[in-house]
Design a protein around this nucleic acid. Structure first.
Length: 572
RNA sequence: GCGGCUGUAGCUCAGCGGAUAGAGCAUCGGUCUUCGGAACCGAGUGUCGGGGGUUCAAAUCCCUCCAGCCGCACCA
């Protein structure tokens, strides 16, 4: 189906084209009418004519029969009110459309999304939250839009930190690592190794030798490395399951994966004449980057000790994603501190011819998670907060809230619900503000059942489902007449029809919060409708229409939440 | 020093060239013998960080200043 916005836009575009080809109608939703077109003033200015005269001409050219009525207002705004026949037609089409009016991509793209990327062998913490949640939402949005998404969890599983862990494992196991240890407390294990590394010179030396052994593929070293990595990934997967993140073991393609390609990266840069030796390191100097003294800034691909830096593996990853995964688009959902590094990687990859212009490469940045004191979010004791403990605290609060409401749920069902609610609370709070901004992590606020929160949206959905449960029999639409006799019904209908443009705007701009804003607005229209328009006790066509609106609202909420990675329970 | 991001109501945030700047929370006042009240309706509150400019039109674009955060060669 053609969305309501697109229908309107096409008709207006034709009218604008008749006056000046290519002129933008600037069509927006409006508070004064259903939609407004603001393009007349600019057009009149260019033509040197009176705006209201141009507006009148546009109106004459516009074929809006059965689509909308127009009113010229103010200096030349076109206020559009959608015609009943159009609303009837569009709403009927929505009832039969699983995609709720959103048109799937005609030329699906292969999109590689690099997100989450925690350090293996360290416990996941709030610092990993945003990349994981935002990346997951974008992956789901792209999939819904009809694209092929390849998720890449570029975990930190290589290099010096791992050499250090392996040495520590050897020290700690009774038989010098001949058998793998079961590492119960990964975080503690990592910290102990770190302390030893910083304090003990001989341990540091052994670790350095171990890096060489690791990178050159020493079997014993690799076996120990594998043991640590496997356990860590098992643990990561538990967190992903707890959070409801669509990442699993097959998406884990960490730094280690590119080890064999690093020498090739350096050799090919050398052949291309891009490699420069500087201070003993092998570098590329992409133009336009300078350090604090104004001197050219290198991307160091091979360190002076012959080891490869992360620039090398990032470059190898670009090649892999373009050559083997055939990416049309690569998104890096990575913290903003990496901005310059990534820009340099893209620049060098383009210089080397590894990243053709047709491949869009974008850094999806995000702000920090702050505590209620507006400083970096830390625990009472000043440590970084573990994701697992954050989640369990949220679950406890959700469970307490459910108990207070004394539902008739048994313990198991209530706990399961508490998990769904707490995930929604955390994810929605993260997704509902512009991702580039820092946001304040306040569990009390985000888990509240009133206001702009995940649980509020879930509740709006659950109320709708309750109506259908009470109906007893399955409901299916049959020639629904959308008379939209009340303002609440009409407002809800307009909200439902706006799903495609809200979704598309969120996708194109890579801003999931736009979809959140839409869903919250829809939920408010819904509750106003719900309050004013009885459904079960109404009769005839009105009843049928209200069921249809409920059905559409439920599906729109569920779909919208689901592409954000948020579940919609049937009952709360 | 260079580059990037941020500054909107008491608090948390939308608004990204259009009309009197919006929402949630909090506050105050209503509705209702709840199709699930975790609801709905209403009210008040703003030097859109300051200043200049561009434009028919600026919170929005440009310049500048102030405040805060981040990055700027071998840890990733």
């Amino acid at each position: 189906m053609t969305s309501t916005y697109d229908t309107l836009h096409q008709r207006l575009q034709a009218a604008f084209d008749a006056v000046e080809p290519g002129a933008d109608p600037v069509l927006r939703t409006s508070e004064r009418s259903d939609y407004q077109s603001n393009g007349v003033m600019a057009l009149a200015k260019r033509a040197g004519r009176a705006p209201r005269e141009v507006a009148a001409e546009i109106v004459r050219h516009a074929d809006l029969d059965g689509i909308a009525t127009v009113e010229i207002a103010g200096p030349g705004f076109l206020n559009l009110t959608l015609a009943p026949t159009l609303l009837q037609h569009q709403l009927s089409a929505l009832l039969d459309d699983d995609r709720l009016g959103q048109v799937a991509a005609t030329t699906p793209k292969t999109v590689v999304i690099d997100y989450s990327a925690p350090n293996v062998a360290k416990e996941m913490h709030v610092g990993n939250l945003r990349s994981t949640v935002i990346g997951d939402a974008l992956a789901r949005m792209y999939r819904f839009a009809g694209h092929e998404v390849i998720a890449r969890n570029h975990v930190g599983d290589w290099g010096t930190p791992f050499a250090m862990l392996i040495e520590h494992l050897v020290d700690e196991s009774s038989d010098h690592g001949a058998k793998e240890l079961s590492i119960k407390d990964l975080d503690g294990f990592y910290k102990a190794a770190r302390v030893k590394f910083d304090a003990d010179e001989s341990f540091k030396d052994r670790s350095r030798r171990r890096v060489v052994a690791l990178q050159s593929g020493d079997p014993d070293t690799l076996r120990l490395w594998r043991a640590i990595v496997d356990q860590s990934i098992d643990y990561l997967n538990l967190v992903y399951v707890d959070l409801g993140i669509a990442l699993d073991a097959k998406d884990v393609v960490g730094e280690s994966h590119y080890n064999d390609m690093l020498a090739g990266v350096v050799a090919d840069l050398d052949h291309a004449g891009l490699l420069v030796e500087s201070g003993g390191a092998r570098c590329v100097f992409p133009p336009g980057f300078t350090n604090r003294d104004g001197d050219p800034l290198p991307l160091i691909v091979q360190k002076s000790d012959e080891g490869f830096g992360y620039a090398a593996s990032d470059l190898a990853a670009v090649r892999d994603r373009v050559d083997h995964l055939h990416a049309d688009e690569i998104l890096y959902v990575v913290g903003v501190p990496q901005a310059q590094h990534l820009e340099m990687v893209y620049a060098v990859a383009r210089m080397a011819g590894w990243l053709p212009d047709r491949v869009r490469c974008e850094h999806v940045t995000f702000g920090n998670v702050l505590g209620t004191d507006r400083k970096m979010f830390k625990s009472r004791s000043g440590e970084t907060v573990k994701l697992a403990s954050l989640l369990s605290e949220a679950v406890e609060r959700a469970d307490a809230a459910l108990r207070e409401r004394n539902t008739d749920l048994d313990d198991t069902a209530r706990m399961a619900l508490a998990v769904q609610i707490s995930r929604a609370a955390i994810k929605y709070a993260d997704l509902s503000t512009d991702r580039q901004h820092d946001y304040v992590f306040d569990l009390d606020r985000m888990i509240a059942f009133e206001g702009d929160t995940g649980p509020y949206l879930q509740y709006a959905y659950a109320r709708l489902r309750s109506i259908f449960r009470r109906l007893g029999a399955p409901w299916s639409p049959q020639g629904v007449a959308f008379s939209l006799g009340t303002s609440q019904e009409r407002d809800l209908a307009l909200g439902l029809l706006a799903f495609p443009e809200a979704f598309d705007a969120a996708l194109v701009s890579l801003q999931p919060h736009r979809l959140c804003v839409y869903l919250f607005d829809l939920a408010q229209r819904l509750t106003a409708f719900y309050d004013a328009c009885p459904v079960l006790t109404s009769e005839g066509d009105v009843r049928e229409q209200r069921f249809a609106l409920c059905d559409l609202a439920a599906r729109t909420l569920a779909t919208g939440l689901s592409v954000l990675g948020i579940e919609a329970p049937e009952q709360m």
